[in-house]
Write a protein that binds this DNA or RNA. Structure first.
Lengths: 146, 146
DNA sequence: TTGATATATTCATAGATTGGAATATATGAA
DNA sequence: TTCATATATTCCAATCTATGAATATATCAA
């Protein structure tokens, strides 16, 4: 199979951003996918920003999305090209060898809040590192029971 | 070994540009390195541009340089980290599966002009695809005999 | 020294990228 | 319908990136 230049450098450019690389590592750690608010809490970045960066990853065909009610789940695409296998190996190495471990740990904690394997909370359920959320108090919200 | 974010996304960003990816592929094909003018002819890009992009690759610690007389030879760094092995695998796949083959072919043709394994010509020894060089005629220059 | 030449850098500028703030959209529940 | 909420988008300003053109630097030869 022949790759267009267009696709190839977009692939690397997509990973050439800290936030997107962190997202990719998180998604590699959760093969079935994570929803936006879970990723927002894992990275402690704003929701619009996470959403934007996920869009870039999607445009590069690194991730795919599926809607489930109000939640959008993103996961890494299945590698359908040797290059994607190599890219995946890179992401795995970054996962192993960098401080992205913290993000993954926060993500796992967040995933513990799921009910029946599904996200039932919005964002702002995690203690913030950066004090981004004003007031600082954790919003208390009851889980939606389906 | 732990990687700083700084290093990691710079690495991907360095490859997130068409010209730099083409350069990386060319250098993978010539492990002992190629000089700037050979790469200029292989890619048919301007010398300042090739020089600039090589600088970015160097800053990302993907390539290293050595001077030999008037010529600067660039080559891929030896992988000293698992991530660099993975990155190399990516570049190799791109080499195999994309139209960078044309660049590598032109580079090999250019390398045939070497004497004793060293570059003895400047740029503009190759027929131009894009008609970038005004006049269009190939500059005739005698090789320097050392 | 002077001249030729391989490479690097500077300058200017067009275009792309980033991210905060605000807003829009989409879905589900009541 | 109306409200709540998960996600996406738009607007905007700041910043970064890419590249042509011109120039500077470095090396070698004479």
């Amino acid at each position: 199979m022949n790759l267009a230049w267009h696709d190839v450098d977009d692939l690397f450019a997509a990973l050439g951003d800290r936030i997107r690389l962190r997202l990719a590592c998180c998604l590699l750690a959760v093969p079935t996918g994570a929803c936006v608010c879970e990723l927002v809490d894992a990275l402690d970045e704003s929701q619009p920003n996470v959403s934007r960066h996920l869009k870039v990853l999607k445009a590069a065909r690194l991730v795919e999305e599926r809607r489930e009610g109000r939640w959008m789940y993103y996961r890494l695409c299945q590698p359908d090209h040797p290059l994607l296998d190599s890219i995946r190996a890179c992401i795995a190495t970054v996962c192993r060898c960098s401080d992205v471990q913290e993000d993954v740990r926060r993500l796992r904690t967040r995933l513990d809040l799921r009910r029946d394997g599904k996200c039932v909370f919005g964002t702002a359920m995690m203690p913030s590192r950066s004090g981004r959320r004003k007031g600082g108090e954790r919003r208390v919200r009851l889980p939606l029971v389906h």
